[in-house]
Design a protein around this nucleic acid. Structure first.
Lengths: 135, 135
DNA sequence: ATCCTTGCAAATGATTTGCAAGAGT
DNA sequence: ACTCTTGCAAATCATTTGCAAGGAT
């Protein structure tokens, strides 16, 4: 039983090939938009419906399997839930790269939230610029 | 001549009342979505068209007067261009509050970009949670 | 066998466009 | 006067919904 199948079962979602394919694509690409996922999957499963992708992304975000990464000037991308990290977003090729989130940054944000009596639940750090390849 | 009029002229945009109203609303609210801007302005200028708001937001973002703040699970909001800062986003009431961006954070991100040969142009830090009022 | 999930097509909602009339400089 | 901007309506694009048929457990 694959990792993705287990993830789905743990969230009370049946392990359909549509769902497994969505998770696989997110894993492979790291960060991917809904219509990119659709375009990828129909290569091998042409009967897939775009509506199915939408419905499942919404479900998986609700269940916490996926995280929405909203990006200025683009459509949101989705990633697997994972440790806090920083997004380097290239404004030329639109690729997103992850960088580890240092302990200091984590502490800073937690302290800042504490001071504001803000009940912190999620951190999203986006750095926009031009990546090494595109320069 | 108002601040907003000057800002517009500096960007080679004619100072129409529609544009001045958009900038005023963004300033007053701090962070506001396109349809909220529209709803605000038609209270006093019912003839305003939503398409005009869209066209102008796009123009003002291109000119750098406004910054798009994309938010997970919501429509983007817009803010006036200003110093780097952190967004505390309340997932209950959807209000966005600004916190100053410390020198350390700035340095950390600049250093990280340097290491990656990433040409950093914009930083966006969103902390999601529940604000003091909503708790 | 049961209940959940899918694909389709239609409905809704958001954003963009073209163009004649109107406003800013 | 000249050019840019507006409002409108239509067009396009994105997302959601309802429902009968199919698939997972």
């Amino acid at each position: 039983m694959s990792d993705h199948t287990i993830l789905l079962k743990q969230s009370n979602l049946k392990a359909t090939f549509q769902r497994i394919n969505i998770l696989e694509n997110v894993e492979i690409h790291g960060h991917i938009s809904i219509d990119e996922i659709y375009k990828q999957i129909i290569k091998t499963h042409p009967s897939l419906s775009l509506a199915t992708v939408y419905k499942n992304i919404i479900l998986m975000v609700e269940k916490g399997l996926l995280i929405e990464v909203p990006i200025a000037g683009e459509k949101s991308k989705y990633e697997l839930k994972k440790e806090n990290h920083i997004h380097l977003i290239c404004t030329k090729c639109t690729k997103v790269e992850d960088k580890p989130h240092t302990k200091e940054i984590d502490e800073l944000f937690k302290d800042m939230s504490q001071v504001e009596s803000f009940e912190l639940s999620k951190q999203q750090i986006n750095l926009y610029g031009v990546c090494a390849k595109c320069r």
